[in-house]
Write a protein that binds this DNA or RNA. Structure first.
Length: 636
RNA sequence: GCCGAUGUAGCUCAGCUGGUAGAGCAAACGAUUCGUAAUCGUUAGGUCAGGAGUUCAAAUCUCCUCAUCGGCUCCA
């Protein structure tokens, strides 16, 4: 056995490195000094991991995505050490790195206060200043169980017990007096955490199960340098300014009032105009794509909800009311009426596919703690459609919907992620139906070259689905569009069509939304544009601003012309200085301010100021109207 | 629903260990007549989320309810 290993580096060079050297020593031989960890054959390991085999090695630098993850994971251990040293009675649960930081869950009776957080931060700074080493040890399961039992860390013992049986050894990491069950890797020493901040405390169920004990979770974030941390915190502040609840108030779009009730949105004129514009676009687009508009009642007899299965599976989310001694359910979904429309006639295979579209308002009793601005409400309107088709038509119908989603997202300017959710353990329907539906969904994604993630077992109990997710200002993902295959409802409502063979056949049903809930979509839309909507969506497209009072008559004339041309416009004829009114137009994110003064009256023009401050040449009112109309028609 | 925090004028927020409310912006009125992000002055505006309790006295302390915020669970 040679005393040297052949180690290859990303530069392409291969070097002889003494057997048993650390990853750090190998990297330094090749001139890399900045790595916080290493990646050996694509597996992340400690920078001090010893090398015993020929391999390829890449340094993981502090500010790379992977490097940050390691720093944050290590920061969570440091936080746990600080917490244990300040409050020895606390039990630690679990503490990973997450997308933009880290957390650790603790069991402690008294809540953590902001003063506690400061103490913990202080302690963490001490630990980081000491720059103690993270050291890795491997041991058998039983040794590890014994170790954590002795420490009284019952959550760790539970984690070890629940490891799959084929796992015989586990690794632990020590730093200072703190020991944690951990796969690693970690930074070499605590001093490698350049900058961190604890952000918030929240409750979290042990292992994410609401039947378990609620633990206290401390969130924080860490970076390799103070500057990066500051940039991040600044970014978060910026994002808060895009919050749709903030903008909804500033631009007078909507309210959710305590008097009216939680989760119930009241649209103000400007918010309603925005909503109207979205809905108008949708109606036109649906008609273009062969959908028929329909509309069902808001309440339907409870018997129907029993037939559909909602009564058994969805009752706790539904509201019920009584009319003339009969129980009625307020609809939480729109499908039932659509079933009845289909059933109102005998259908031939020649009629299929049938696509029923409804801007359907539904009510769902969402738990109080989940309500969130426009994103999570108790009454909302879905751009809902049910496509009833033959099994053979399934694939092309799904592609049609995916294309619809792509068009919509492009028009509104969103990037999105796609998830395919497959059969859950608890489900109904035959294997062949599931196979057909799942491959139809997958096939449509593949053929349309749409990248997607598979979420195994996340489908609805009645069928698989494709979800489309877009992000809000704080990077939280929200589901908007979804396509779901449903075998249950055609079965339960005994839908059929007469086939070419003259016999009755069971159709397949697709349930789909494009924007999802209009309310939620508007919320994400507001944050996406930070209230500065494209011209075609702006509730107010232009504001006429007079320089002084004597220009009001001309301003009024201009305003009338704009209005009669269908341009959504307002006049700001207040006795204020021009700068004041321009500022207001800017803060209201109005696309155009039309300034009228002596010069404009003389030439019969308006001076154009675009949102953002760009000064355009003065134009005639007619020219401005032509331009705005043409831009709006192109959805710009 | 669960954990924690918060709730004072239309908005943003002050109000220390209990002694019955204050600023800026907005509003109304007046002055000013102004050229692209805030003209000046005056006035008005509050059941301190709601309810109960402790106290001579509660925005302030306690309890309950409602709502909001950050999470968890759930979801369009």
């Amino acid at each position: 056995m040679s005393n040297y290993l052949k180690i290859s580096f990303p530069s392409g060079t291969v070097r002889d490195v003494p057997r048993g050297s650390s990853a750090r020593e190998a990297l330094e031989l090749d001139g890399h000094f900045l790595a916080v960890a290493a990646s050996i054959a694509d597996k992340a390991v400690d920078i001090n991991a010893a090398l015993y085999e020929d391999c390829s090695i890449v340094g993981i630098e502090a500010n790379s995505q992977q490097g940050l993850e390691i720093i944050r994971h290590s920061a969570s251990h440091i936080m746990a050490e600080a917490v244990k040293s300040l409050f020895p009675a606390i039990k630690v649960a679990i503490g990973p790195a997450i997308e933009s930081g880290f957390y650790y869950d603790f069991e402690r009776e008294e809540p953590f206060t902001s003063a506690d957080l400061e103490l913990i931060e202080q302690k963490m700074r001490e630990i980081i200043a000491e720059d103690g080493a993270f050291s890795r040890e491997e041991m058998s399961r039983s040794e590890a169980t014994l170790l954590f039992e002795k420490l009284g860390e019952s959550y760790k013992v539970e984690l070890i017990n629940d490891l799959p049986p084929e796992v015989t050894n586990v690794s632990i990491y020590r730093q200072g007096d703190f020991v944690d069950l951990c796969r690693g890797p970690h930074i070499a020493s605590t001093g490698k955490v350049g900058a961190f901040k604890l952000l918030s405390v929240a409750g979290a169920y042990w292992r994410g199960d609401e039947k378990n004990k609620m633990l206290q979770r401390i969130y924080g974030t860490a970076f390799s340098s103070k500057q990066e941390l500051d940039e991040y915190l600044h970014l978060v502040e910026e994002a808060k300014r895009r919050d749709h609840r903030r903008i909804g108030k500033d631009l007078d779009l909507f309210q959710v009032s305590e008097e009216a009730g939680a989760g119930l949105v009241i649209f103000h004129p400007k918010g309603m105009m925005l909503r109207y514009l979205i809905e108008e676009w949708e109606r036109k687009e649906h008609i273009k794509r062969g959908y028929q508009m329909v509309m069902g009642p808001q309440i339907l007899k409870a018997d129907l909800w029993k037939l559909s299965g909602h009564y058994d599976n969805y009752r706790e989310n539904m509201y019920f009311t009584e009319v003339d001694g009969q129980s009625y359910g307020i609809k939480p979904m729109n499908c039932i009426s659509h079933m009845l429309i289909y059933k109102s006639q005998l259908r031939s295979y020649r009629d299929l596919p049938i696509r029923y579209f409804e801007l359907g308002t539904v009510h769902r009793h969402e738990k109080a703690g989940v309500l969130h601005g426009l994103m999570r409400v108790r009454q909302f309107t879905q751009d809902d459609a049910h496509i009833i088709c033959t099994p053979e038509q399934l694939s092309s119908e799904i592609k049609g919907v995916a294309d619809f989603v792509a068009t919509a997202m492009q028009i509104f300017g969103f990037e999105y992620e796609v998830e395919l959710s497959t059969r859950p353990v608890k489900s109904i329907g035959s294997d062949s139906d599931w196979e057909l539906a799942t491959s139809a969904l997958r096939g449509a994604l593949v053929e349309s070259a749409i990248p997607y993630d598979v979420h195994q077992g996340d489908g609805a109990f009645y069928g698989p689905k494709i979800d489309f997710k877009i992000k809000d200002a704080l990077n939280r993902k929200w589901q908007c569009a979804t396509i779901q295959c449903d075998f249950t409802l055609p079965e339960r409502f005994e839908l059929h069509y007469i086939g070419e063979d003259g016999l009755r056949h069971r159709p397949v049903m697709l349930h789909r939304v494009i924007l999802g809930a209009i309310e939620r979509f508007m919320g994400v839309l507001i944050e996406h544009f930070a209230g500065a909507f494209p011209l075609w969506l702006s509730p107010v497209q232009a504001v006429v601003v007079t320089v002084t009072d004597k220009h009001i008559p001309y301003g009024q004339k201009v305003l009338e012309l704009l209005k009669s041309a269908g341009i959504r416009s307002e006049g700001d004829f207040r006795n204020e200085k021009l700068g004041y009114k321009v500022r207001e137009a800017q803060l209201q994110k109005t696309p155009y301010a039309l300034v009228v003064g002596d010069k404009e009256i003389e030439n019969g023009t308006v001076a154009l100021r675009k949102r953002g401050g760009e000064q355009l040449p003065s134009v005639s009112v007619e020219e401005f109207i032509r331009e705005v109309v043409s831009l709006s028609q192109r959805y710009e």
